[in-house]
Amino acid sequence: MELPSLGETIRQALALRESIFLAVQQSPQGLWTALMVVGLAGLSQALGQSLVLFINHVRPRRFILAVAASVVSYMAGYLLWAGSVWLVGTYAFNRDVAWVTVAAVVGLAYAPQVLAFFELTPFFGSPFGVLLSLWTLLAILVAVRVALDLEMWQAVLTGGLGWLLIQLWRYTLGRPIYALGRWMERIAAGVELRYRAKDVPNLRRRPVWLTNMDQWRTRRATAKKPAPPPADPLPKNIHDKDATA
């Protein structure tokens, strides 16, 4: 079965059209299309949630590397998710479907996350993020239903069991792999990613202003009138770089 262009495929997936999920399942290029969608979604989400990189003072070049590392990590998460759905489908519902087929359909369900970049939008970005999560959940339910030929309640159960499997993996055998992922992200970022988004209200750039103020006032007071303006009345590097929580 021929697939439409990537843009059109994503558009139809966003509209939760079952026919496009079926087409991806049956097309020989289905997996590649899904991988492209997941890659785009990963990039978009990495940018949409790049606040963490900024608050940890990541340098511009490292920013690109950190985003790339995040995309790799996102792709690994996708493979894990596709694997758990396949496992549940195979062993809980006795479906005989190839892993690749499930991976292709589940990958297309990531389409709403292609818009995750817009979570950056000030003020409206956060509620949009919630909307995207719900949208993705619906897309995954449709995808699982199509991929494994299930009823809707079975798709919901598969999703739930798949999530449980991932949690089990995460806190047992997968633990060193997650640690490796975090290490990779830290190396790419070039700094310790100490602060999370929830820390933002407690972060302070501690200006040296307050400690330098006496010195600055004395300098101005002793200057002849009219006060000869220094090129910049305050030192160029006026801030303590270390943000402290």
Binding site: P60, F117, K236, H239
Partner: peptide, 30 residues
């Protein structure tokens, strides 16, 4: 454009644009 708009603020925090604070058109001392 709206989505990209916080880059200036966050880049400032990350130290990408330096720490200089500009005068508002009135030169220091005036």
């Amino acid at each position: 454009w709206a989505a990209l708009s916080p880059i200036e603020t966050m880049g400032w925090w990350a130290g990408w644009f330096g720490d200089t604070i500009h005068d508002g058109g009135i030169k220091p001392g005036n």
